[in-house]
Design a protein around this nucleic acid. Sequence first.
DNA 1: CTGAAAGCGCTTACAG
DNA 2: CTGAAAGCGCTTACAG
Lengths: 340, 340
Amino acid sequence: MSITRSKITINDIARLANVSKKTVSRVINDSPRVREQTRKKVQAIIAEHGYKPHPQARALALRRSFLIAMIYDNPSPQYVVNMQRAILDELEDTGLQLVIRPCDRQDADFYERMQAFVDHTNVSGAILPPSVSEDQKLVDLLTASGCRCIRIASVVMDEPQNTVKTDDSAGAAQAARHLAELGHRDIVHIRGPLTFRSSHERWRGFSSVLGEFGIEVQEGSVLEAGYTFDTGLACATRVLARKNRPTAIFAGNDEMAIGVYQAAHNAGIRIPEELSVVGFDDTPIASRVWPPLTTVRLPIRDMGRAAARLLLTDALESRVRQYVSFRPELIVRNSTAEPA
Amino acid sequence: MSITRSKITINDIARLANVSKKTVSRVINDSPRVREQTRKKVQAIIAEHGYKPHPQARALALRRSFLIAMIYDNPSPQYVVNMQRAILDELEDTGLQLVIRPCDRQDADFYERMQAFVDHTNVSGAILPPSVSEDQKLVDLLTASGCRCIRIASVVMDEPQNTVKTDDSAGAAQAARHLAELGHRDIVHIRGPLTFRSSHERWRGFSSVLGEFGIEVQEGSVLEAGYTFDTGLACATRVLARKNRPTAIFAGNDEMAIGVYQAAHNAGIRIPEELSVVGFDDTPIASRVWPPLTTVRLPIRDMGRAAARLLLTDALESRVRQYVSFRPELIVRNSTAEPA
DNA sequence: CTGAAAGCGCTTACAG
DNA sequence: CTGAAAGCGCTTACAG
């Protein structure tokens, strides 16, 4: 049982239609310079034989791969899947395909791997969520290989046509205001890794509002974790074991917030009666745990779609003068209450 | 600022090395028919100029795209991400890239879209988890386009070299035995959609063990849901409102089990004291909710790696005579206990 | 509006 | 061990 895949080519169509292959090419590419009658005839033959242009041959001749990449090191699966879906939604019917490339910036040969990736794929564009979006050397490397980069980030590091901005600081500020207005004064923040800009932005917005309320941040009230469940759990376990434990914890993302839940359960501390918890991201788990988690919503799907849309608009022709920006929104659920 | 990407080609290397392009090609492809001295010289020039063969040109000449696809309609994000990572781990350093294609079998133009996908990508292989793996028409369509399909499924529908099998029935049987041995007699099963074979397999394994214990399944004790949180929540809400509510619920997957948790919380029913819950999959959320969920573990990553490995071994040369099969394992946590 | 020639960057027979 | 020719399936100038 051998694979006889005698794929039909542009030459076959040309012969059958009694035209040159160039004319077939014009029909395929919707060139206006074809007589209507000729076009009809060619289209009929194409349809009859189910002819499809060979993608790699087109790519070679056009010097475009029709491939775009999503390169990411975001540790949250939900974030990743949502963004993938959003990008693919926007790419639908464009003929562009999505190649994914998870990575780890800690790898010794990180840049070599990324270089090998562009070399092997020839992707013409890439969408980079945090924290890879903040890696200037990576973006330079990709750009030098002819890959247009769209960065999704909480800080501006590029021109408007290559940037989707999120105002993480403002989101964290809302979380702080919410807790402060409930009456909390003893608040701990479990932040993400220092290698993520969002970790700084969130802390910045949070602490500035606490300042407005005259709340001074205690020594040891800001802990660095890894944006993961396990690190959130570990930090919260330590914090909740203190004799003067806080009345509220603001976690840098939902994954860590769920780790806080676990630690609270382990210590027999009730949420929100004895401990208020706020997360960040509004991933699905936020509304699935009990009590449902108060969190800051980042519109991941909208951000992904916006990024893909930027990629679809030619960088040179682009009229984009203003930054596409997304402002997070506080979603109040049942994990926060007045302190006991 | 124009993009001057004067990429160096095989011709440049040939000229610089004073050899024919064919010789360069031989060096690139590790052909033994090159004098050691020549090879060294060519390799030096290649390294010096950072030359990388153009992927689409190679693909065209070799009639291979070096692209493989993961096509899926699995609604669980965690399953999807785990499988993607597993496949990519196995593909590392092979030069193959992963193109992802989520889909929905309910779409009116499902097959047209899938056909367009292969036509546009020319993927040489695809990995299909459930339920797309059970779609014979899809597999036929892909195969006809020269795409080798590896199916991950709970029922055998293809030859060993194209199949990764999971024994869902045995997994569900363990769950049933666990509940029965704890003393439960009034058990409800919330199953997945009828369009998923796993839904049937899990029910089959579960009910057969209940039979062994002489437990007869009540009318209305098997509910069909959609493998999602929301449908699990809806079903459980109805079940828990009955005047003779069950003492245990076996959900067809973790997502639905978490929906059961939510329904129990809403109704003020304590887990496991008043209700035992068992899931299926052991996705991360299973160990993150409270109480940690008793569930059946499917080794998703191992399955993904096995599927990728099958794809890497040539179908014709393959010595695979036996089915690669994974047996699930019951993970007992804290969501199950003796009935009150 | 249409076509013959040359080219995209690589590889596969075929020679030698 | 090495190379000149032809080919993979498409498109871009250039003519007419």
